[in-house]
Design a protein around this nucleic acid. Structure first.
Lengths: 216, 216
DNA sequence: AAAGAAAATGAACATCGTTCAATATCTACA
DNA sequence: TGTAGATATTGAACGATGTTCATTTTCTTT
């Protein structure tokens, strides 16, 4: 599919080096973007800020990324890699019910510690809009994360839990409940609704969910 | 605190009329904003659009509203009034468990039918940021809505359900689960995760939640 | 060393929310 | 009824944003 016009034996060496340099700069942009996100939030981070951070011009950023959505999409993938890593730690937990309960706590901790990243992954339009510009591209990151949950729920079922429930729908319900807590917390919708601190409320609420799940 | 300099007997009449006219124009702006929201979405709706819709200048909008956040906050209140009205219909349902189950369906239907309004009410920063600019102002809209849920859950407890659960935390958990479904649906995070249509998935997932609740 | 390819630049454009001096309209009273 | 003062409305202008692209700079090959 790709045709390279090779004009000499040495050309291939420099071409590889150039490709590596391009990749490095691309990563440098993403790294700067992520740093500025963590420092000032996504909304406050502009293309000009990113360019200034890596000491390149604005136009250069657009040489390496089609638009801001593509940058956000790449960071959204990085976020899923981090969350995936956090979740894989639980692979060592043998009892599926215990793993399921721990999974939600890992998920919630990730959301609380990386609120901007979480919003990018599960709320913002930008990364999904970029996904739509690609043809036939599916949301593999979300799929993989959900698969981990579904597999765990399935193992719970095999052990006799969740009788009468549907695997797919129940997994989605559990995801929804946990995501809902994270979402309401990040979007500051807990404030004013209860008396205790929002993080305490999250822990208590998750305990309630666990109680509901344990019964089934 | 407010001092009116009244210069004649008739002054009060015209002052009232003026106040009413101001109120009417304010409502006209909100009405136009809401119409444009429904037509083109919140993100695509600009102050200039709103001004053009009501055939006033841009500056006029800023005479009646401090900034865009204030407009969004007013519409966010309107949304809660509508949702509150939808929910109050269920006051006639005697059995609290039945009312609780129906409450979630009403909530989900509202979210699906008014996605932009829902986002404004439960996700966007703007209305909460405006709330913070006010002095000592709490999120009364959210409180009132949550109270309806908490009251219902409390009545369920009085009938012997949810033994061992905490009222406040369990209510929040149920809200989270339902909100999570709405949020994932509106933010297009269901696509690609499952095979069936997203709305079918929502119904199935809510049924699973109901099963969990019924057991407790 | 020079020509051609590749990379980097930053001024310029359209649009956004927002401001405010200037203008237009209306009100109250002689 | 006419006029001064209050009130309401205007829209050009500002700064910031994402984005584009003709131009310039740098690198590569011969």
């Amino acid at each position: 599919m790709f045709i390279f016009f090779v004009t000499s034996i040495q050309t291939m060496g420099t071409a590889e080096r150039k490709a590596k340099e391009k990749e490095e700069l691309k990563n440098l942009i993403l790294q700067a973007a992520r740093k500025l996100f963590a420092e000032n939030g996504i909304e406050q981070t502009t293309i000009r800020n990113i360019a200034q951070e890596i000491e390149y011009s604005v136009g250069t950023v657009y040489v390496y990324f089609k638009d801001k959505n593509e940058i956000l999409h790449h960071l959204h993938i990085q976020g899923f890699k981090q969350l995936g890593g956090d979740m894989r730690v639980l692979a060592s937990v043998d009892d599926p019910m215990e793993r399921l309960r721990a999974l939600g706590r890992v998920y919630l901790r990730f959301a609380i510690e990386n609120p901007d990243m979480y919003e990018l992954m599960f709320s913002m339009k930008a990364p999904m809009e970029f996904l739509e510009t690609l043809h036939n591209q599916e949301w593999n990151e979300g799929k993989a994360t959900f698969d981990f949950l579904r597999t765990t729920v399935n193992q719970c079922m095999e052990k006799g839990h969740f009788k009468g429930h549907e695997l797919e729908a129940l997994s989605f319900t559990i995801w929804s409940a946990t995501h809902g807590m994270a979402s309401l917390h990040i979007n500051q919708r807990i404030k004013g609704v209860n008396l205790c601190g929002p993080e305490t409320m999250l822990d208590r609420a998750y305990d309630e969910l666990v109680m509901l799940i344990n019964r089934a």
